[in-house]
């Protein structure tokens, strides 16, 4: 049961990565090594923490990685807010993107609270 849940969040995270990479391609050139780089960095570091969290068995270690993942997701949210503000993405993109992130965040919240309970 628990294992399935982890796989689901992993799958959702991969979808988020595909979607983000598609979007990021149309940003202006001036942002290529600024905002785009930041977005990709927080995205991939989040993926790394997710992998560590899935693989670690110690509860405290797991919680630490999950918190790191939470932080990188929060950073990603700020980046996407900025992208919408500077009109790099449309309202439609913004809606879809934030729906994807919200889905992951809700799952992550559940995971963290279940770790805290045990």
């Amino acid at each position: 049961m628990k294992n399935d849940n982890n796989l689901l969040i992993h799958q959702k995270y991969m979808e988020l990565i595909y979607y983000t990479n598609d979007l990021v391609r149309k940003y202006p050139k001036s942002e290529k090594f600024a905002l785009v780089q930041e977005i990709k960095q927080s995205l991939y570091s989040g993926l790394r923490y997710l992998m560590y969290a899935i693989k670690s068995f110690n509860k405290n270690d797991k919680l630490k990685f999950l918190n790191e993942l939470d932080v990188s997701l929060n950073l990603l949210k700020v980046h996407l807010r900025l992208s919408y503000k500077y009109k790099y993405i449309s309202m439609q993109n913004y809606t879809t993107w934030s729906a994807k992130i919200t889905d992951i965040c809700n799952m992550l919240g559940g995971w963290i609270s279940s770790c805290l309970k045990r």
């Binding site: 949210k77 807010r81 993107w97 729906a99 992130i101 919200t102």
Partner: peptide
């Protein structure tokens, strides 16, 4: 701080 999450939820 959590704008997109809150509104989507």
């Amino acid at each position: 701080l959590n704008l997109e999450n809150n509104i989507t939820n």
